[in-house]
Amino acid sequence: MAAIEILDLEKNYLVGFWRKRPKLALRPLRLTIEEGEVFGFLGPNGAGKTTTLKLLMGLVFPTGGTARILGKEMDDPRVKSEIGFLPEQPYFYDHLSARELLNYYGQLSGVPAKERSARVEQMLARVGLSESAGVQLRKFSKGMLQRVGLAQAILHDPKLVFLDEPMSGLDPMGRREVRDLIQQLRHEGKTVFFSTHILSDAEALCDRVGIIHQGELRGVGAVAELTSGTQGKIEIIFCAQRVPVGLTALGAESRISGDMVNAVLLEEQQDAALEVLRRERLKLISLMPVRSSLEEYYIQKLRPTEGQKEEGENEADRKGVGA
């Protein structure tokens, strides 16, 4: 069963003084996320990631379309007890301690009273906050608040967890801990849908990613596939203080750093390049195929499509005529 089925979900806001001018936040979005999957929703700031999450959480209402979460309509109240949500840059009740906050959320999520205390302590330990459990949240750092946010999202043992920019504002150690936590959730069989603009996190954690830009889903793909392919190029590293002329003649893009040269050239030029190195009596350090990276896929998907280019050009023409 699909954990999330997004069926042409769409959102326009009405802006301006009279609230008559529509502003597009999300174009009709169609996306399916399978159970047990870790899905990364990637895009630059303002791309529509948070809007999508808010729509799924029922915090804003769609202009069109719908979604099914764990087999139920997204506005079905029963869905909420099976999902967890961490908003971007979470902010909680200042006057509560971490323990009191988790207890409150446990009450609201319907965690039975008998289990609640034990569950709260377990979550505090899991996110490394046992020692600060009694401290009021107004004294917490941003990183500590993020941990509380993660704890509240998984407190009631949800099947599906939505995380909006979970690594935002965290130091490298904090990011590592969040990564570990997401890995643990994967091993527990949970479905994780998280938004981020940090590609290395997505590459390390996700089974699949979706790229969204300007409110439009530009592409969806399995990370393993996107990063397994070679680009038909090889990278040769060898000891030298200058680039051999023969290599430049083969069309290699070279970079010298210290006593080493790093050259990238087409796969079919491999034998010829090695021949150049042998002839020049240069020491080969390594030879590797150049792998595709998520970054390249991301940048490729963020480029304007042909239709958008035309649209942009037409817009520029209109402005030119107007001027």
């Binding site: 959480m57 915090l59 109240p77 979470p90 902010y91 909680f92 009631h156």
Partner: peptide, 14 residues
């Protein structure tokens, strides 16, 4: 404003 409501309404709270 403080977005504390997000974590409340994402629970089974109407």
């Amino acid at each position: 404003d403080k977005r504390t409501l997000y974590t409340v309404l994402s629970r089974p709270v109407r």
